[in-house]
């Protein structure tokens, strides 16, 4: 097949021919591709961000602050912080435990366990909320028992926390499993041989090695916890000032045509998203530098 190809670069020296064809496209093609990619990203990324902030400040800075200081807005912010404050640490502990078992040991059913841990990512947010309604709601499996004991989970704060835990379940584990796997066991075995206890080995050897991945996982987990809408919407009952999180408050304001107030609260969530991306970029940058450094160390060892 290769012999029938027309040579469009005839007239160049063979070496030049290879170089121009292999190193890249012509300037025109390059800039057209860059232009199309930038236009696509501008349309889907920059435009939504721009509209959030322009609408939030459409009536000026005064009304912006006023809509954030409304009692309902403040209680929504408090509830969002509370839900994330419970869900993130719980998923952090779980993520570390799961990553330790999966990353450091070989056992039967490991790949099934990984699939099950990832499961919440493939469940629709609405269904994620619904499963707790079916378990704890009045019509649910445990509903009558809970009602007899005067315990309310659905349409109350515990339901919101549970739904938040579910949708953010895999984040930390997912970040840590490949990291712990890649590290192998030599460093831990050395620490143990030198007399460290299991916990000492974990806190002084394993944890420092995975701290950037851990931070990244926690940040992602937190962003999703504070921003979750569908699952929380199902279990919340939308009681103003009591079971409304920030995203739910945004929805209520928007549906009441209080657009600039809705976008004011939305702008806080957008800032959270931007801060998350900033931390992500920094963590990736750190990790890359660490990788380059360890590669240099290896190189020096080989020379020595």
């Amino acid at each position: 097949m290769a012999t029938t190809l027309p040579l469009s670069t005839r007239g160049l020296l063979p070496a030049q021919r290879v170089a121009t064809a292999a190193t890249g496209e012509s300037a025109v093609v390059r800039w057209v591709l860059i232009g199309v990619a930038v236009l696509f990203l501008a349309l889907f990324i920059f435009l939504p961000l721009a509209i959030v902030f322009s609408q939030a400040f459409a009536k000026g800075i005064g009304p912006y602050w006023a809509s954030l200081r409304q009692p309902d807005a403040l209680s929504a912010i408090r509830l969002t912080l509370l839900a994330a404050g419970i869900a993130v640490p719980l998923n952090l502990v779980f993520g570390v435990a799961a990553a330790w078992a999966i990353g450091k040991f070989e056992f039967f059913g490991k790949s099934l366990l990984i699939t099950l841990i990832d499961l919440p990512f493939s469940v629709s947010p609405v269904v994620s909320g619904l499963i707790y309604v079916l378990l704890f709601g009045l019509q649910g499996v445990l509903g009558p028992w809970l009602a007899r004991h005067n315990l309310q989970i659905i349409f109350a704060v515990p339901g919101i926390v549970l739904a938040t835990i579910f949708v953010t379940f895999p984040f930390v584990a997912r970040e840590l499993i490949p990291l712990l796997q890649a590290q192998g066991q030599e460093e831990e075995e050395a620490a143990l041989a030198l007399g460290a206890s299991g916990w000492q080995t974990f806190f002084r050897v394993s944890l420092p090695n995975i701290k950037w991945g851990l931070l990244y996982g926690v940040i992602l987990c937190n962003a999703r916890a504070m921003g979750e809408f569908g699952a929380v919407s199902v279990v919340s009952g939308h009681i103003r000032g009591r079971t409304n999180t920030m995203p739910l408050h945004v929805e209520i304001l928007y549906n009441e045509y209080q657009f600039s107030a809705a976008f004011a609260v939305a702008s806080l969530l957008a800032l959270l998203a931007l801060a998350t991306l900033l931390v992500k970029t920094l963590v990736e940058w750190r990790a890359r530098r660490q990788l380059a450094e360890s590669a240099r160390w290896d190189g020096e060892e080989q020379i020595a």
Binding site: A37, F44, F46, A223, G227, E251, A262, L269, A273, L277
Partner: peptide, 20 residues
């Protein structure tokens, strides 16, 4: 641009919804 590609992961869906 590279950093902002992940925005749809980080931006709460309700915010994306009202913005779009």
């Amino acid at each position: 641009f590279d950093s902002l590609v992940d925005l749809p992961f980080a931006l709460p869906t309700a915010v994306a919804g009202i913005a779009l």
